[in-house]
Amino acid sequence: MTSPRSRSISALIATLCVYGALVATHQGEFWPFSIYPMFSQAGHPWSRVVVHEVAADTTDGSWPRPGRPLALRPLGVKANDVAALTAAVMAGDLGSGRHLQRLLAAPLAQHDLLVVRIHGRLEADTVALIHEPVVLLRPDTLLRYPTPAP
């Protein structure tokens, strides 16, 4: 009969081996195991998104301009998810566009929405921010820049 101590050590080491094997073969993540890789790549440029209501319909064929920023928190939507879905849409995954429309269905019923990507990078001793409108969302349509203006 093994002692509690040696049984505990065996259980800990076995868990550690499983942990190691799972994170090593799954890019550092297999819930609840993780090597916590966030923030490990310091100084790299990043991209985030902010969703704006569309200012007003344009009639001259140009893309609508961003109006008031849309607060996602009251909608119970995470900015991380919108950023990930937008990245997938930009990579050509239209299924992610449908996800985006579904997550933002409530505000889309009121306004068209413009997803603006913001790129940040270090330039000397400042952080440069570049705003780039990327996706126009309507309840039943999704248009990607640089698609010709609607």
């Binding site: 923030f39 310091a42 100084g43 990043w46 985030r48 920023p69 900015a79």
Partner: peptide, 28 residues
């Protein structure tokens, strides 16, 4: 992922801006 210079304060500036943009997206 980065090395000892991970602690360069300008990296924190980048993250502050990144998270502020997330805050902007969340709160408007």
């Amino acid at each position: 992922g980065t090395g000892l210079h991970w602690a360069d304060g300008r990296h924190l500036w980048l993250w502050i801006q990144e998270k502020s943009i997330d805050g902007w997206a969340q709160t408007g």
